[in-house]
Nucleic acid binder design. Structure first.
Lengths: 249, 249
DNA sequence: CGACTAGTTGAACGACGTCAACCGTTGTGG
DNA sequence: CCACAACGGTTGACGTCGTTCAACTAGTCG
């Protein structure tokens, strides 16, 4: 297999390794790297898969951020999850035929599609990986619960701070953040849709947060200037991310 | 094994059967029924397990309703899921050592504890059940996403209506509801904590809903008088429950 | 029978939404 | 190469859904 195609597995491997309860064997690592992926690009706001589809493949985020969202009958949009490189947003389609949410490119996005049969094949040969991927889906459930707490019980300012904390920790885990700063080309609309507020309000909160010297978010880049203060404002406790070691210093 | 102890598996079996993609073999059904459970009772508001514990067993809800909840550092409570008979609220503790939320009795509650080793044992002997339980956890994720949409993007009236719809469908699935009515001894506080509003506001919304002749909720019993209107008010679409056949008429 | 829990209701307040105008950047086509 | 539309961001004025605080009722239990 071509090196240029293998490289993208980097953050994916890193993520799986960080979630497995054991050290991956050489064979297991190779199996993950050997997953045949078909790379594909999406412009911001393009849908990758939409609700009610029945995909026969899943995809790994290679670069950029994907957003899972649902709409009410009245056309209100709620982002229910963000996916950073290494994540597999529609992994569940392996077991649930019809997709109950849509996934779009929240920023310009590069993904790698992987056929379900290839995944099933890998699980058969490497049963320990099955448990690891089960863990992956369970951890996503944990994120979902924390989002619920965040969106329903904290005020907008804390909510936004919390989201920034989470994204940074997740980016750090796959080696895409350093010094509490990372690429983050989300628009205020996406942030608003994720946090259950309006874009106008995100704008105001962002202004306030900038004003307090906590962060800057511009040119598609997030920089945290006062990490302890951000954590404090967010009430952020990384336990729900189920990291193996404390990456969240 | 004693009949009196086997009976409780009823709604559990019904739920698993409704989620499996195949018809359970006799052996599989027997394996599920043979799971050794230790029955236990909890008064309303008592915790069954709390955040950060590392349980070596899970439990099946036998009677009553359990609530999964999380708290903010400031003491705000958010219920992130309700569990009806047949559900296994902390099933994930099988793969995630430390629990990221607490589970309490939302009503008087009867549960059956099952050791993790017994479950692992069952999975080894009946591999097809592994996939089915994976489906169970994935469907819970789907519920969680719908709750997010509900709590973040609908007004309180619709939210409550939606919750009632969901609970009724889930109760029907395990044979505990008929005529769009079922036992439901939740207090206004629990409803409020689940929907991200205050108890006072739930009270007002409930009054309005009663006034419109949609439902009555009293004496621990929910009765829907106008199911179509309730669905309409909720914007309820049962797709996210991933039912096999349309129980939600 | 007092104490506790659950529910009910009113009045004042506040966080966030709505509406609307305006600015800067980008990219595209005449 | 300019014009202009499209998009993202910014800001003000005002409206509202839900909160907060508080008082009061009814049922229940020891």
């Amino acid at each position: 297999v071509d090196r240029a195609i293998q490289a993208p597995h980097h953050s994916f491997l890193r993520k799986i390794e960080s979630i497995a309860l054991f050290d991956l064997s050489v064979a297991e690592r190779e199996a993950l790297e050997a997953l045949p992926i078909q790379a594909s690009e999406f412009a911001a706001h393009q849908d990758v898969v939409v609700e009610n589809e029945r995909p026969d493949r899943s995809f790994i985020v290679l670069d950029g951020i994907a957003a899972a969202y649902k709409m009410t009958e009245t056309g209100q949009r709620q982002v229910v999850a963000f996916y950073v490189p290494g994540d597999v947003p529609d992994f569940q389609s392996l077991h649930l035929e019809v997709l109950d949410f849509s996934i779009c490119a929240a920023t310009p996005l590069r993904v790698g599609f992987v056929g379900h049969d290839a995944i099933r094949n890998m699980f058969e040969r490497h049963p320990r990986l099955t448990d690891t991927f089960w863990r992956v889906t369970l951890i996503e459930g944990s994120l979902s619960r924390e989002w619920m707490l965040n969106n329903c019980r904290r005020e907008a300012y804390s909510r936004l701070a919390h989201l920034f904390c989470e994204i940074l920790v997740r980016m750090e885990r796959v080696g895409l953040a350093s010094n509490h700063s990372c690429k983050l080309a989300l628009t205020q609309y996406e942030l608003a849709d994720a946090l259950g507020v309006t874009q106008v309000h995100i704008n105001r909160v962002l202004k306030e947060m900038r004003g307090s010297g906590l962060i800057t978010l511009s040119n598609g880049h997030l920089a945290v200037h006062d990490w302890p203060a951000l954590i404090e404002a967010a009430g952020f406790d990384p336990g729900y991310l189920h990291l193996r070691q404390t990456d969240a210093n």
